[in-house]
Design a protein around this nucleic acid. Structure first.
Lengths: 99, 99
DNA sequence: GCCATCGGAAAGCCTAGACTTACCGTTCGT
DNA sequence: ACGAACGGTAAGTCTAGGCTTTCCGATGGC
């Protein structure tokens, strides 16, 4: 899931969609890559559950999927708490010379 | 910054460190890759501001950098709010046939 | 002082995947 | 019904980068 956002182009697309739904052509218009490339990226993002599409005539309107975004936030929130706990423990138990 | 977490191996390392600080050899011991590979990943994570290292004798103890983690959480929180706003607006203004 | 251990650096290989061009199916407008 | 626009698919190319092996500097123990 985070792998999908690892690619800069894909992240840009995701951020574009964050500002509001867009068609494929509109997205491609704001990017330095061809339209098929955008299509491929959208497929990855869709498979990752980060965006969703709705058909409007011949156009496909893409938008960020709140579920996916929430999942990511949840992941980092959990991670944050875990890291905090680790910090607290590290503060108490001074690091050993040899584990 | 998210590019650093895009790689599965690197994300695994990051998650390992989330459970507590570790030396390079210890990290490599839990992974199916060689130690130099871990070193390279740690360099990337360090450059991304996601981990920090402290020297302990000949060992380097790596730990997640709270700053970096907080930055990521901030990014997604901001994104979340932005997406919410976009949703609200999309709900009001029904999508046009042509933009 | 010497040896062992730990970890980063350099060089090279090799695959994943990002991008392009070309093509085709679908849907709408007239 | 026909043409145009939109978008997904296929095939092929090419580079980024992940991994390995090798080597070296630095620190600590004995």
């Amino acid at each position: 899931m985070l792998e999908a956002l690892g690619d800069p182009t894909r992240r840009t697309i995701f951020e574009l969609l964050g500002a509001g739904p867009r068609s494929v052509a509109e997205i491609a218009g704001d990017l330095p890559v061809s339209r098929p490339a955008v299509s491929q990226h959208l497929k990855v993002l869709r498979d990752a559950g980060l965006v969703a599409s709705t058909a409007m005539g011949t156009r496909r309107i893409y938008a960020v999927d709140p579920q996916g975004l929430a999942a990511i936030r949840g992941y980092f929130d959990q991670f944050w708490n875990q890291a905090l706990a680790a910090f607290a423990q590290a503060a108490e138990n001074p690091p050993e010379e040899k584990t």
